[in-house]
Each structure stands twice: as structure tokens, then as C-alpha cells.
């Protein structure tokens, strides 16, 4: 039995679709219910929905053998796990954004509002830049508008929210997409099963991208 952690929300549902097409379906998951765990003993899979940022926790600690996690979450939490496959979905980028007329001055500490303090710190460390990180949990775009911060480090998909609020992306940090991750020990003891899933998912993805 392979335990699979899926991120709640659109990305998770899309990812489940790939699993389904690859032959690891679990019909009960599509039904409306308050159940937390969905199992299909025949094909040997058990799914559960968790908060997107918790997927890597479940996987790292072995509660889930594999899972679907965004690259942003992997970069932020740096879990000790295998990153087996780039699903190429949920594509977006991590970027620095600021007000359109923002003028970056290197002679002062940069105030950075973000949900991803580690990614922001790494990025500015590489530039030997002193920054003041303001950790927020949502509505990051508000921070520069209200002068809470100079810039934000956040996920940008189309940039629509930014432009509507008189902001714009300034620099790209890294490209983000959904990844298939695996617990390192599960990958050893359930090697054949996980490899099988991995190969079949790859096949479905390759067909989609044709």
C-alpha cells in the first residue's frame, strides 16, 4: 500500500487526475463526503488531502510515502526527501515585486514582505544584501502599497493581481511547478511500487505534452 499526500485545492485535484489516468484511480475521492482518507486496495493506493505546505512534512516523516508538493514549498522548507518528477503543472515563478515607480537603493536595508522567508533570505544573501524580512501569511501585495515593505517576494502566475494594484514583478527568482516527492526510506523499501507509479505518471505526462 502506497500512501499519497495530495495538496488541497486545484493543483491537488489536477494532480490526482494524472494519477487516475495512470491507473491509480480511487473513485471514492470524487464523492462528496467528510472522509479524510481514500483507499483503493486493488491498485494499492491510499490518498489523503493535506494543506499544501504540509505535504513535505507528511512525506519527510514517512506518514506519506509519496506526495505532490510545489517547488516553492520544497525550497522554503528544504525537507530531506527525494524529488522524483517534475509534473510540469501549476507552473508559476517566484519573483520580487514592488510598486511600479519603486527605485531600489542599495544604501539602505531592504524591507521584504513574504510568505517564504527562507527563499527570500537565500536570494538576498547571494547578493550580500542586508534585508529585513517581514513574514506575512496572506495578502502580500498589500505590504508595499501600505509602505509596510519596499518589495515582496511571492509567487507570480500571470501578474494580474500585481498590475491591478499598481505593482509589477521586478526580478524572477526561480521557476515553480509541482513535483512528485518521496520519503527516502519508503523509496527503498517500496522501490518497485514507487518506481511503477513514477514511470506511469511520466508516461501520462509525456502524452499530455505531445
Amino acid at each position: 500500500m502506497i500512501n499519497i499526500a495530495l495538496p488541497k485545492g486545484r493543483l491537488g485535484e489536477k494532480a490526482y487526475g494524472i494519477f487516475e489516468e495512470a491507473g491509480f484511480e480511487c473513485p471514492s475521492i470524487r464523492e462528496e463526503s467528510r472522509k479524510l482518507i481514500f483507499e483503493n486496495a486493488e491498485v494499492g493506493v491510499r490518498y489523503f488531502w493535506v494543506k499544501p505546505s504540509d505535504v513535505v512534512v507528511y512525506v519527510e516523516r514517512g506518514a506519506a510515502d509519496i506526495g505532490i508538493a510545489g517547488k516553492d514549498i520544497i525550497l522554503e522548507y528544504k525537507p530531506d526527501i527525494y524529488e522524483l518528477l517534475d509534473l510540469g503543472m501549476g507552473k508559476c515563478r517566484m519573483a520580487v515585486a514592488a510598486k511600479k515607480d519603486f527605485c531600489d537603493r542599495r544604501d539602505r536595508t531592504l524591507r521584504v514582505a513574504t510568505k517564504f522567508p527562507n527563499i527570500a533570505r537565500d536570494y538576498y544573501n547571494k547578493q550580500s544584501r542586508e534585508i529585513d524580512i517581514i513574514k506575512l501569511n496572506g495578502s502580500i501585495e498589500l505590504a508595499p502599497i501600505l509602505e509596510l515593505s519596499d518589495v515582496i517576494v511571492d509567487i507570480v502566475e500571470t501578474g494580474k493581481t500585481l498590475y491591478e494594484n499598481d505593482l509589477e514583478p521586478k526580478q524572477d527568482i526561480v521557476d515553480i511547478s509541482a513535483r512528485l516527492v518521496a520519503n527516502k526510506v519508503s523509496h527503498k523499501f517500496k522501490n518497485a511500487e514507487i518506481n511503477d507509479i513514477c514511470k506511469k505518471l511520466e508516461k501520462v505526462l509525456a502524452q499530455k505534452n505531445k
Binding site: E60, R61, G62, A63, D80, N183, K184, V185, S186, F189
Partner: peptide
């Protein structure tokens, strides 16, 4: 070295 059911080396 790994032991089954212990999620770390």
C-alpha cells in the same frame, strides 16, 4: 542503514 517503518536513516 535503514529499517522498514523508521522514516529516516
Amino acid at each position: 542503514g535503514f529499517i522498514n517503518r523508521i522514516p529516516d536513516s
